[in-house]
Amino acid sequence: MSIFLGYVATILVTLFTYNIFTLGLNIQFGYAGILNFTVITFMAMGAYFYAVFVMPPANASNQVFYILGLHWPWPLASIAGIVASGILGYLIGLIALKRLRSDYLAIVTLATGTLLYGLSGDQNKLFDGWAGLFSVNQPFQSVANNHPNTFSWIFVVISGVVMLIVWWFANQLYSSPLGRSMRAIREDQDVVDAFGKNTFKVRMMAMVIGSTIVGIGGVLTIQYIGALSPAGWTTGETFVVWAALLVGGRGNNIGAMLGSLLVAVIFNEGTRYIPQVASSPNLVPDLRNIIIGSLVILSIWFRPQGVLPERKAKFFELPLKDKYAQTFGGVSANQELATEV
């Protein structure tokens, strides 16, 4: 029973953190049309920086190495981790958001991801290399040590509340004039530029906000698990978030969350217990990646708007007498004459 309860808690925390990742990507791609091909790197930045701020200095005698080791209290370290991923987003934006095609940004995100992945693995002085960080201080450490299930459920509440705040924030942003500018940029950046908006600034905001939100998910992830190594943030993980967003519905925050339920939890967790094939232990994860990749492509083919499409904006309106509603001439100008030539 307690194993089952613990498992349910883990599933819920997974769901909530993936919701957060997908909401972050939705602000970048669904709102502003920014192609971030290394979502998971921002999760890792949040997690690693939380870890090196919260942990005591590295103990070289254990052959464990990492930078900083400031031993800050966990709330402050959480902020440090979140800020770190926001800064990474800002830096990438500085390089690639200025007057460039969306290909370039995609290339720079992918390149940064590859680079940081290699760097954090090969340079064991940064985040302890391929071994990764473990025994990372968790919030409510004593509860975590003595009553793991209680800790899990406390964490369900924490991550659930954080997720709701992020969701609320994303919705506020979506329906605001700023969100509208972001979506217009997604449709046609040049035109928004030609109407006097500083599109660089608006896209930068979407980039940094999205990265920060993914970073929040990263901090929660490492706080719950207490460890992270490069094996935990491969490119495949980025695809999970992308598949979730595309399946659920880009531009729709509920859709984004539904997508992470379908892809990250039901599909990913559901296939976790398929028995391994002894002769090729990688078969199941490989197949899972193939399916995730196909899911991305197929959803663009069959239902690019996702299960829950972006919702049509409605506004409070005072009644207005339609000047053309009565006259035949006006109606024909609307409907018949104005057809495509």
Binding site: L35, T235, F239, N289, I292, G293, S294, V296, I297, I300
Partner: peptide, 9 residues
């Protein structure tokens, strides 16, 4: 995104 998905496959 499609070519990105292809790379994973």
């Amino acid at each position: 995104i499609v070519t990105f998905g292809l790379s994973l496959i």
